[in-house]
Design a protein around this nucleic acid. Structure first.
Length: 210
DNA sequence: ATCCCGAGGG
DNA sequence: CCCTCTGGAT
């Protein structure tokens, strides 16, 4: 089985294992998903979900966040780590959206990545989950680890991994593959003690001899 | 390559 | 104690 066939088979098996993969970050619109995804940098989604209810209540849209006191935002997002950067970036991004994007979330990779604190990973999450667009594949710590272990790439560079995976998968799967690999990365193919004995991909994983 | 940064697990 | 968690900017 060549690499592309293996990649497609991985998606098929993980779809069966995780029937209805949903974004674990609680949100109700593109703005909320953008905020939650920025906060998710080097932080568990579970922790992000503990701070976003208050965040969205106090700053329900880009306009209100643009007028927010950065110190108060720092206070709310403190427990997610990198809190100074995240608060500063979110308020600056909100000001850009309020002043230059009609108060809404930009709907293209090129424009989203002009926002401070937003690069390809965050933009891909917002585009595929809130805006219905598959412009690329979101490569986070889980996708990077699993893509490498599964032999879908020989690189550890997220940009190259994304390109490799885009060539291996059809565009309709670009959004879902992130959720599938994240779910499997959390439950089975964990960073520290991967449970290879439980893995449905064992027979097509280079790690187990292939 | 390094920095930003808190919290939980082993 | 060290590693990891849906990264991004310098």
């Amino acid at each position: 089985m060549d690499t592309a066939a293996r990649a497609r088979e991985i998606v098929v098996r993980l779809r069966a294992l995780y029937p209805d993969p949903e974004p674990a970050l609680v949100h109700s619109n593109a703005y909320e998903l953008l905020v939650a995804t920025v906060l998710a940098a080097q932080c568990t989604d579970a922790r992000v979900n503990t701070v976003t209810p208050e965040f969205f209540r106090r700053w329900p849209d880009p306009a209100s966040l643009a007028r927010a006191d950065v110190a108060q935002v720092e206070d709310v997002v403190h427990s997610t780590g990198f809190f100074r950067q995240k608060a500063k970036n979110l308020v600056a991004a909100a000001k850009l959206m309020a002043e230059r994007h009609g108060g809404g979330v930009p709907d293209s990779m090129a424009t989203l990545t002009t926002l401070p604190g937003v690069a390809r990973k965050t933009a891909n999450i917002v585009l595929s989950n809130a805006l219905g667009k598959n412009e690329g594949i979101a490569v986070d710590t889980h996708v990077r680890r699993l893509a490498f272990r599964l032999g879908l790439t020989v690189s550890t560079n997220p940009i190259i991994i994304e390109k490799d995976m885009m060539l291996l998968l059809s565009q309709e799967d670009w959004g879902i593959v992130n959720h599938l690999l994240v779910l499997h990365g959390r439950a089975v193919c964990k960073a520290r003690k991967p449970r290879c004995d439980f893995c449905v991909l064992g027979d097509i994983c280079p790690r187990l001899g292939l």
